[in-house]
C-alpha cells in the first residue's frame, strides 16, 4: 500500500515539509545560495512540487509548468523513505528508483545541505500528527 493515499495528502505532507525547511534559517540560506529551481515529480500518487530558490526567499508551487534546472522523478514512497534518511541518493539513482534530469554535480552538492532534514522530517510529521510509515 502506498504511503500517501492521495495527491492532496502528499501535497500536505511534503509540500508542508518543504515550506518548513525554508523556515530553517541556516539551511534556507545555503539552499538559496544554490540559486536553483528544482522540481520533484512524484508518482503513486501524482504530484509535482517546484522549489524556486533563485530569489531572496524560496517559493514552492505545485503542478507548475515552470522550467526547472533540475528535475527529480520518483515514487512518492521513495521520497518518503528518502526524507526519513533511509535512501542513499546515489544508490537510488543507480537502481533507477530516482531519475535526475539536469546537472548531477549540483544535485550532489545539495546533499550535505539537506542532511539535517532527515532528522527534521519525522519530527515535523510527529508535531503535525501526520502518522505515516
Amino acid at each position: 500500500m502506498a504511503v500517501f493515499e492521495s495527491s492532496e495528502r502528499l501535497q500536505e505532507v511534503l509540500g508542508g515539509f518543504f515550506q518548513f525547511l525554508l523556515t530553517q534559517e541556516e539551511m534556507a540560506k545555503k539552499l538559496l545560495a544554490s540559486k536553483m529551481v528544482i522540481k520533484f515529480n512524484y508518482t503513486d500518487p501524482a504530484l509535482s512540487i517546484t522549489i524556486d530558490m533563485t530569489g531572496s526567499e524560496g517559493i514552492i508551487t505545485f503542478n507548475d509548468t515552470k522550467k526547472a534546472e533540475v528535475e527529480m522523478s520518483m515514487k512518492a514512497d521513495v521520497a518518503h523513505r528518502f526524507w526519513m534518511g533511509n535512501v542513499n541518493l546515489v544508490i537510488a539513482l543507480a537502481r533507477r528508483e530516482m531519475v535526475a534530469k539536469g546537472p548531477i554535480p549540483k544535485i550532489l552538492k545539495l546533499l550535505p545541505i539537506i542532511k539535517p532534514a532527515y532528522v527534521l522530517y519525522p519530527q515535523y510529521m510527529k508535531e503535525k500528527n501526520l502518522n505515516i510509515g
Partner: peptide, 9 residues
C-alpha cells in the same frame, strides 16, 4: 540537454 542530461533519463 533538456531531455537527457542527468542520471538514468
Amino acid at each position: 540537454v533538456n531531455d537527457y542530461s542527468g542520471a538514468e533519463t
